[in-house]
């Protein structure tokens, strides 16, 4: 029951959030300098050409009228047509979404595994040199931003030791029998491990670049939280029952210590999705972020609006998932 109510409330707030985002993005991209018509016409176009093209895209109408037309379309599922590619925005955006989702989720999984392993190892050998080494590594990972990690990884594993691909989503020579754009998942489902390996080899470096800073945050916070939990009475009681240190950490402390970390991971994951914009560009990965940069460069107003709305939707959905997970992991909240 509590979960259903939570869902209903969150659905409502999501709608309000999206409406706000729609208003802001629509007006902000029209206020900033630069317009799509100038990008489309060759130099030396006449005033007449400009006026005709503006009328064609409805850009000669008053701002509020333009906004009304766009919102009316969005409510009917029509997000407009991209100015540069002349394709429906919705098709473009949904076509790229799977690539970005796969990248972000792979990065999240890597971050949780790396950060979790660092926290558990640091807690198991706390007070010793191992913990010190982990703290130093965490600090280094945290003080370098994701796009710099991207460059470092390209240099290390793309140039000096070329073991992974550093550009694109899949090798162009490969024949893809896919019906969806979720290449990573579909190749697994179709048991095409040859394709899967190629896709993973393309994703490892960008995902790792996104994952390293988040892994450091998870590692630091979870370790702190674990160390505090390890001093609690129920952990001490478990020790008297005959459990060893590792089992005490995993069985008694981890689940309780993970709760505060989880909230933070949710917030940080949205930052990670924001990070995909630059990282996708860096690795020429054909996702939403890469498309967003092109759209901004070309002043493709409808496409920018569509992408920003989709990002806003992803952020709210991530937050909702975190809240639900929190309720599932914390029995005190579940029964409240």
């Amino acid at each position: 029951m509590a979960l259903l109510r939570l869902l209903a409330i969150r659905l409502l707030t999501t709608l309000v959030t999206l409406a706000g985002v729609a208003v802001i993005v629509f007006f902000v991209i029209r206020v900033v300098p630069g317009n799509p018509i100038a990008m489309m016409l060759p130099p030396g176009a006449t005033e007449d050409d400009i006026a005709r093209l503006s009328a064609l895209y409805g850009l000669d109408q008053p701002l509020l009228t333009q906004f009304g037309i766009w919102v009316a379309g969005v409510l009917q599922g029509d997000f407009g047509t991209s100015i540069t590619t002349r394709q429906p925005v919705l098709d473009l955006v949904l076509g790229r979404l799977p690539a970005t989702l796969e990248l972000a989720i792979m990065a999240l999984v890597m971050a949780v595994i790396l950060g979790g392993a660092a926290a558990l190892t640091g807690t198991r050998f706390r007070g010793g040199r191992t913990e010190g080494a982990i703290d130093v590594a965490n600090g280094m990972a945290l003080s370098v931003p994701d796009f710099l990690w991207g460059l470092v990884l390209i240099l290390l594993f793309g140039v000096l030791m070329p073991v992974f691909h550093i550009s694109g989503r899949v090798s162009p020579a490969l024949d893809l029998p896919f019906t969806t754009d979720f290449y990573l998942f579909e190749s697994l489902l179709r048991l095409r491990f040859d394709l899967w390996a190629d896709i993973v080899a393309h994703m490892v470096l960008p995902a790792l670049a996104l994952a390293i800073p988040l892994a450091a945050i998870i590692g630091q916070l979870l370790k702190q939280s674990l160390k505090e939990t390890m001093n609690l009475d129920y952990v001490t009681l478990a020790r008297t029952k005959g459990y060893g240190e590792t089992r005490v950490i995993l069985r008694e402390a981890l689940r309780n210590a993970a709760l505060p970390t989880l909230t933070l991971v949710g917030v940080q994951f949205t930052f990670l999705i924001g990070g995909t914009v630059i990282i996708e560009r860096l690795f020429s990965y054909e996702g939403l972020g890469n498309m967003a940069i092109d759209a901004v460069i070309n002043r493709d107003l409808p496409l920018i609006q569509g992408i920003v709305l989709l990002f806003a939707l992803i952020f709210t959905v991530v937050n909702l998932i975190v809240d639900l997970l929190y309720a599932v992991l914390n029995p005190r909240l579940r029964h409240a």
């Binding site: 009475d233 129920y234 009681l237 478990a238 005959g242």
Partner: peptide, 26 residues
């Protein structure tokens, strides 16, 4: 350490002071 833990776990037990903090909440 391992033998000590096993021996204590098998033949000794603790009744702790504060029942509110001595049970694992999850």
């Amino acid at each position: 350490p391992k033998d000590r833990r096993r021996r204590i776990g098998a033949s000794c037990a603790l009744i702790p002071q504060d029942p509110l903090t001595a049970l694992n909440p999850s």
